[in-house]
């Protein structure tokens, strides 16, 4: 039978079952249950749970653990993720896999502690300085949180880059039924690049992000961007819901996609042709799914718990071929299905 778990706890258990036995964190609402869960579980499985002196220290411990070849992760909420930006950039520059979880809250600054999606730009465009991207996954249910943790670790290893799960306070705090994978179902890949010790039996591996020769650095960045192109082609994920005949296509991810789905269902009951494209990967952005839905839609409506950070990506994805509208709440406010339904009605 399925069990009831909070999103935060489910993320933690899923990570352990995906072979992550090294967690470094620092408490912050609304993410703290994740770290608390890790603090109980890790000692029992011989893993590492470490509450660092700061978010910056925690992310750099993840860097160190990952350089040594193990699966490692950290988690935080918006203000804490800003602090981790430097370490994430260093990991990207060192081609290191890692999982970073952001259970978003309202911002900017210390903001509030209620659910928000105002870190979209940060996650997809500017997690830190320099030319780089990270993989960004946006679950919308507790079960999907479990499933995506394992995929995020796998793809981070495969492409040697950091991955982020972009959740929010609603998903982190809510409980839903989940079924968990068996522990150790998939063995993490062997990492022949890792600085894991070799007793003088091979040339030593160096993990580094400092390259003082500009042409060498340019080459490395270009290689990385070639990999990004492959990822854009192969790893886009989205759910297309009732989009086949939809006049109005709502585009929403994570918690706001749940609200949007409720509104789409109500619109359909009223005979209005509404559908939903729900990006599951925010980077790479699911341009293929959006183009399929937009090809016969009359209007697109982006719904977010922010001031509209995803709107430009939607416009770019469909090359502005259809009007893209926006409805959002921010600061920790959650849109209601009735509010979104009004927007759909106005566009039908």
């Amino acid at each position: 039978m399925k069990i009831l778990m909070k999103g935060n706890e489910a993320l933690a258990e899923a990570a352990i079952r995906a072979g992550c036995h090294h967690f470094f964190g620092y408490p912050i609402t609304p993410q703290t249950e994740l770290a608390a869960y890790m603090s109980k579980r890790m000692p029992k499985i011989g893993g590492t749970y470490l509450q660092a002196e700061s978010e910056i220290a925690a992310v750099n411990m993840v860097l160190g653990a990952s350089a040594a070849g193990v699966r490692a992760m950290t988690s935080s909420s918006s203000p804490g993720v800003s602090l981790k930006g430097e370490g994430i950039s260093y990991m990207a520059g060192s081609d290191l896999p890692a999982l970073i979880i952001n259970v978003q809250r309202g911002g900017p600054g210390l903001g509030g502690i209620q659910p928000s999606q105002a870190d979209y730009w940060q996650a997809t465009k500017a997690t830190g300085h320099g030319d780089f991207q990270i993989l960004v996954f946006a679950p919308s249910t507790v079960q999907e949180m479990v499933d995506l943790v394992s995929d995020a670790f796998d793809l981070a290893d495969q492409y040697r880059m950091p991955a982020m799960i972009l959740a929010d306070g609603m998903l982190g705090q809510m409980m839903e039924p989940v079924s968990l994978p068996e522990e150790g179902e998939k063995a993490p890949a062997q990492k022949d690049w890792a600085a894991s010790g070799h007793g003088g039996k091979r040339a030593h591996n160096i993990v580094n992000s400092l390259y003082l020769t500009p042409d060498k650095l340019e080459d490395l960045v270009k290689v990385r961007f070639k990999r990004y192109e492959t990822i854009k082609q192969k790893e886009q994920r989205a759910e297309e819901y009732l989009t086949d005949d939809a006049d109005v296509v709502v585009v929403a991810y994570g918690a706001s996609s749940r609200v949007a789905r409720g509104a789409v269902n109500k619109a359909r009951e009223m005979g209005l042709k509404a559908g939903l494209v729900r990006p599951i990967t925010l980077w790479p952005f699911p341009t293929d799914a959006l183009n399929r839905a937009a090809s016969h839609a009359k209007n697109l409506l982006v719904v977010e718990m922010s001031m509209g950070q995803m709107v430009d990506d939607v416009k770019l994805a469909i090359n502005c071929q259809k009007p893209v509208h926006f409805y959002g709440r921010t600061g920790g406010m959650i849109p209601t299905p009735a509010e979104v339904l009004e927007q759909i009605k106005a566009l039908c």
Partner: peptide, 22 residues
């Protein structure tokens, strides 16, 4: 609320439980 949610789970319903956490 958790008891009510679990009752739904046992009956194979779709369920969600969301607390205020402020």
């Amino acid at each position: 609320g958790k008891v009510a949610a679990y009752a739904g789970l046992i009956e194979n319903k779709e369920i969600s439980w969301l607390p205020s956490y402020g």
